[in-house]
Write a protein that binds this DNA or RNA. Structure first.
Length: 538
RNA sequence: GGUGCCUUGGCCGAGUGGUUAGGCAGAGGUCUGCAAAACCUCCUACGUUGGUUCGAUUCCGACAGGCACCUCCA
């Protein structure tokens, strides 16, 4: 199916097509590994994951997905420096070797990052590569040389800067983000770093070494420029190296539009002569309880924080995937609870598709369906009527008398056509700028309208196939029959349950409640059924 | 100061020039000694204010409120 995507470059939704063949080459701005990632970061990674899964599942594309790991920047240097309070014994011992410290420190947080995204259902085997910035220093240096050769960068005190005003003579600077150069500096915090650049618009490609910082040797036309890369250059170099230019899609948070991505475009074009990517896709931010997440407000959460509160990471995944990536997402604990319930409603439906749990199927199907159809306002009645109006036949029967007393008569009045429609509607929503809320609404409407026990056997199989595919995208459900709890219930508990059943039969309800309380205290819950009970572990 | 986005029912969250999102919560019902679960039904909103229009939540303007970015924050 054709995928349409909002492109930040054109600010419109455009049909997406890979530049070469059927393979989508996608680059996602990854984390700077100096701390545990917070849930705001997580949204960006979940969006990238969602996008690549939609392209794979619905677009039918092969995916080459690259996400970088920024392990060299001001913060990783600062926090890995000897004596840093951010150093954690699990990282190992600090040494006199600054570079070694940096790598140990960032490796620790890279591991925690991989751990976190795995818990969120992002699969590491979906990545083609996760390059670390420090592993591509020569490529960055090569790009910097090219930019200098082409006349769009200059060296100042051993650092290299991109010359924005020179570049503006050749091309637009401000493709993603409209820049008002007249008012650019008004009211803005002035950069506090000590590097000497000619113009405030210029950005650094390479920073000359400072005391106490790890550095790489770099000599440009006899000028010693030992130091380290600027922030933006790593992406330009690694994209070229790992994906080739131009590639198809670049993702990241909206905050990265400027300066990061803007500078990336300028650099790549100034150096390689090509813009990096055809599509820029940016996810909106996340707020917590309607406010910006910040440490000072006390609403700053890492995934670990939330898991310590007993939150299932898959509920976070589902909650975030339930909102459109282009809208601000309001993270609330209420919302997570609500997402969990919604997720399990679909899960229960999937379980039931394997084996409709409605007791005696033969009688129940007829009774319940008839019951539903008797009701004037029933959704099922409405949709069957609609379907009839549209001359859709279901099963092998043509229910021409649907407006009168409907004769269901046999099992499963919902056939494959209904599943086909569910699938095409849901996929169309996802193919239209990854509109997950619409897609899910569609699924819920279907679930509400068609209980599993009125779906015929064949269509149930199709439905299971559909959910399997959908789960290749959402990845929050289990596509299987309802698991049978293989819990060994202690005999003392079953004894209590038996006693309670007897108490109930003899209408001794006080005693029954008392026994139930004892069962709960033993760590089990008891639910009554028609003529018995079920016991579950709490 | 500049740039962009947003304001929908108790909460979350879609969408539309006139008819229906969806989820959660809540209410009623079926079942039931009670409870739980499940299922059925119900709950009809669009920040304020002008304008365009036969008709605006939807288009235009103003205002109010919120958010983001403006040189290394996803």
């Amino acid at each position: 199916m054709q995928i349409n995507l909002y492109n930040s470059l054109t600010k419109t939704i455009e049909p997406f097509k890979p530049l070469e063949g059927n393979t989508v080459r996608m680059y996602s701005c990854g984390p700077t590994v100096y701390n545990y990632a917070h849930i705001g970061n997580m949204r960006a990674f979940l969006f990238a994951d969602l996008l690549q899964r939609v392209l794979k599942t619905i677009g039918g594309n092969e995916i080459k997905w690259v996400m970088n790991i920024t392990n060299i920047d001001d913060k990783t240097i600062r926090d890995s420096a000897p004596g840093s309070s951010a150093w954690n014994p699990e990282m190992g011992l600090q040494s006199d070797n600054l570079m070694e410290n940096l790598l140990k420190f960032t490796q620790y947080f890279e591991n925690s990052f991989l751990d976190d995204i795995s818990k969120l259902g992002i699969r590491l085997d979906h990545f083609t590569a996760m390059p670390k910035a420090t592993e591509f220093i020569p490529q960055m240096q090569e790009l910097i040389r090219k930019i200098i050769e082409n006349g769009f960068a200059y060296i100042s005190e051993g650092s290299v800067y991109f010359n924005v005003s020179e570049w503006r003579k050749k091309d637009t600077y401000g493709k993603l983000y409209k820049i008002d150069f007249e008012n650019f500096r008004a009211g803005v915090r002035i950069d506090s770093d000590q590097y000497e650049r000619e113009d405030a618009n210029d950005f650094v490609l390479w920073k000359y070494k400072k005391a106490g910082e790890p550095f790489w040797e770099f000599e440009i036309d006899g000028v010693i420029c030992d130091g380290r890369p600027g922030w933006h250059i790593e992406c330009s170099a690694m994209e070229k190296e790992l994906l080739g230019l131009p590639f198809d899609i670049h993702t990241g948070g909206v905050d990265l539009k400027f300066p990061h991505h803007e500078d990336e475009i300028a650099q790549s074009k100034a150096g390689y002569g090509v813009e990096p990517t055809a599509f820029w896709c940016h996810n909106e931010f996340l707020e917590v309880e309607g406010q910006k997440m910040s440490k000072s407000l006390g609403n700053y959460f890492t995934l670990r924080d939330l898991m310590n509160q007993g939150i299932d990471p898959l509920d976070i995944r589902f909650a975030m995937l339930s909102a459109h990536y282009g809208s601000t997402y309001n993270f609330t604990f209420e919302g997570i609870k609500s997402a969990r319930k919604a997720r399990f409603r679909i899960q229960d439906y999937i379980y039931d598709l394997h084996n409709p749990s409605k007791g005696d199927i033969k009688t129940n199907i007829i009774d319940n369906s008839t019951e539903i159809l008797k009701n004037e306002n029933s959704n099922l009645k409405k949709s069957i009527k609609d379907s009839n109006d549209n001359q859709v036949k279901f099963g092998n029967r043509n229910h021409s008398n649907v407006n009168g007393d409907l004769d269901i008569g046999d099992i499963g009045i919902v056939g494959n056509q209904f599943i086909d429609k569910l699938k095409s509607d849901t996929y169309t929503s996802l193919a239209t700028d990854i509109h997950t809320p619409k897609a899910l609404a569609n699924v819920f409407s279907f679930i509400n309208t068609y209980p599993t026990y009125i779906i015929n056997i064949e269509a149930r199989k199709s439905a299971i196939e559909f959910f399997k595919e959908l789960n290749n995208i959402f990845d929050v459900w289990k596509i299987e029959p309802r698991p049978v709890e293989e819990v060994n219930i202690p005999t003392e508990v079953t004894d209590l349950a038996e006693q309670r059943l007897q108490a109930k039969k003899s209408k001794n309800f006080a005693e029954a409640d008392n026994l139930r309380q004892r069962i709960i205290e033993a760590g089990y819950s008891i639910k009554d059924t028609k003529d018995g009970y079920t016991i579950e572990k709490l």
